[in-house]
Nucleic acid binder design. Sequence first.
RNA 1: GGAGAGAUGGCUGAGUGGUUGAAAGCGCCUGACUCGAAAUCAGGUAGAAGGGUUUCCUUCUCGUGGGUUCAAAUCCCACUCUCUCCGCCA
Length: 425
Amino acid sequence: MLDPNLIRTKTEFVKKGIANKGVDASIVDEFLKVDEKRKGMIKEIDELRHKRKVLSEEIGKRIANGKDTEETKEEVRNIGKQIKEKEKDFNELNRQFKNILLRIPNIPHSSVPYGKNEIDNRVVKRWGDIKDFDFEPRPHWEIAEKLGIIDFKRAAKISGARFYVLKGMGAKLERALISWMIDLHVEKHGYKEIFPPFLINRDSMIGTGQLPKFEDDMYHCGKDDLFLDPTAEVPVTNLHRDEILKEEDLPIKYVAYTACFRREAGAAGKDTRGIIRVHQFNKVEMVRFVKPEESYKQLEELIDNAEDVLRLLNIPYQLKQMCTGDLGFTAAMKFDPEAYMPAQDRYVEISSCSNFEDFQARRANIRYRTKSGELRYVHTLNGSGLAVGRTMAAILENYQQKDGSVLIPEVLQKYVGTDRITAEN
RNA sequence: GGAGAGAUGGCUGAGUGGUUGAAAGCGCCUGACUCGAAAUCAGGUAGAAGGGUUUCCUUCUCGUGGGUUCAAAUCCCACUCUCUCCGCCA
């Protein structure tokens, strides 16, 4: 959520930022209209309440002095009725006010290159040597099915399309990746491990910005009004919702594994094969709560933490900066590390690292007290470190051998317990 | 799921209808003392919204939402959460 005062005082700046994201900026005018009305009503109601308060106190004094109070009581009763009526209108207006505010996207950082959509994103960095295969590299789903470590057919039987079952060394590799990534971020990068709930309430989903706009993309348990987390960002960021943190505790760095659930509404026909785009996947996520003045330095660190995973796995990757039009609803700046996939000869998003500035902090009411006693909103950041399923796919494709077996990256060998996956093991 | 107890400021914890937005303690901030620190003493210290804008005014907030009343932290109802006991269960 944006600072209402920023919208009021720097209207054109805000509109331009929103427009640069490709969002209709007329929502700002809608906001200003409701805002004016709302302010007027607050004034009216405040004055009435003030009158009531003064008169009520008067009645108290009169009773103490044994004087008559009936006339004043009648007057206050009337004021009470007026207040109640106005409050009804105000509540409706205030609901609108909040709703509009929750639907206005974050505005891009001034340094983010302008662009309409993903086509305008820029590659800012490439790392690693793409292997020269002396055979035609196969896509990960073929490799995996041949090795018997992924089963799409039975997943469809159990759950439906866009699900998969891991078996044997496939399951073990998935589990190994999760453990290794978390250990890496805890031991080398200084994060604290969190294991949060996967079912999330409405307030938390609003806090990080999934609701109210993207309810259709979420799995929802109607009976309990709980949502399946689409990313660990949600539970982990909301860990400190409605809290006041201490300046000396910042930055706070958390790493969490969760399963992630996405309906992928609107992605029909995209990445239909393999495990790139599925309804349930595993992800290790890094989250940071930081002081505003250092959030962009923190973003660089976060990105490097994600890249480190790829470097240690020795998977060639590129880093892409999202243009204004591809930042999404909540981010002010975003970089996506992308892993090279030999079979398709393309780079696939394997992480996404964002600075939300105070956008989420305002929604979730996460503040810190400075040493001088001032209250300020923190900046929140997060990034995948990494998407586990896609990492597995990248390993399968980059480490595949002519005979169909797959080598295990050295850093993972002690977690997997072998240096190679074959059809036999 | 059943029965009971509870939810108050950054924290602990008083407060059962009328200047109580809230005692006390802790913590924190400022000042004094000190070479400096600790201890001690004095003072200050909730948040949000709206208005005025150099220290100002008003309103709201004691889990959430309703209700009673001239007036609610305080009484009533519903809900949420926490704790204890029972049931069920991995």
